[in-house]
């Protein structure tokens, strides 16, 4: 069983494709939608966690790519700038997936992009513009 968190960017013309349905039905994958939105240019952006057998996962990803949908690991979309962070911890209570973590001995903040679900709560909470999400 393999698990991946990916960001799918749908060009305007593919927005109406029932991709999630096909991933589940045809490729036997578990799909957990972490966030979904359509921007003003009508491009769709879906953050999902997909898990299943390696072969199914590869096939599913190839199916997505074949549709002209861009797929990339979630980690590439969010940036925590360590040099901007002052470890104030304002973000800590707001981060729902504990991607932003506080070591209570050193009182230093760290970021684990594997746990980030791109909710964006930290963007508004960070006074130092230390988090950046590239849309």
């Amino acid at each position: 069983m393999l698990k991946k968190r990916v960001v799918l960017t749908f060009p305007k013309e593919t927005v109406e494709q029932p991709i999630t349905y096909h991933l589940i039905k045809n490729y036997d994958l578990m799909v957990n939608i972490l966030s979904a939105k359509i921007n003003p240019d009508e491009e769709g952006r879906l953050v999902i966690e997909i898990s299943g057998q390696r072969k199914n996962l590869d096939n599913g990803i190839n199916y997505i790519k074949g549709l002209g949908v861009t797929i990339q690991p979630l980690a590439q979309d969010v940036k925590w700038k360590e040099d901007r962070c002052t470890h104030c911890t304002a973000c800590i209570p707001l981060c729902p997936s504990h991607a932003l973590m506080l070591d209570r001995v050193t009182m230093k903040v760290s970021f684990d992009s594997d746990h980030c679900i791109l909710c964006g709560f930290c963007l508004k909470a960070c006074p130092y513009q230390a988090v950046e999400i590239l849309y």
Binding site: C88, T89, P93, L94, R104, M107, P127
Partner: peptide, 25 residues
């Protein structure tokens, strides 16, 4: 406050700070 939660009106409330303890140290 530094433990990460306080109890207010019987509710557990998560805490964060604006002052950086790491920088102060």
């Amino acid at each position: 406050l530094k433990s990460g939660k306080i109890i207010i009106q019987d509710k557990e409330v998560p805490t964060g700070a604006l002052s950086s303890y790491a920088k102060a140290r």
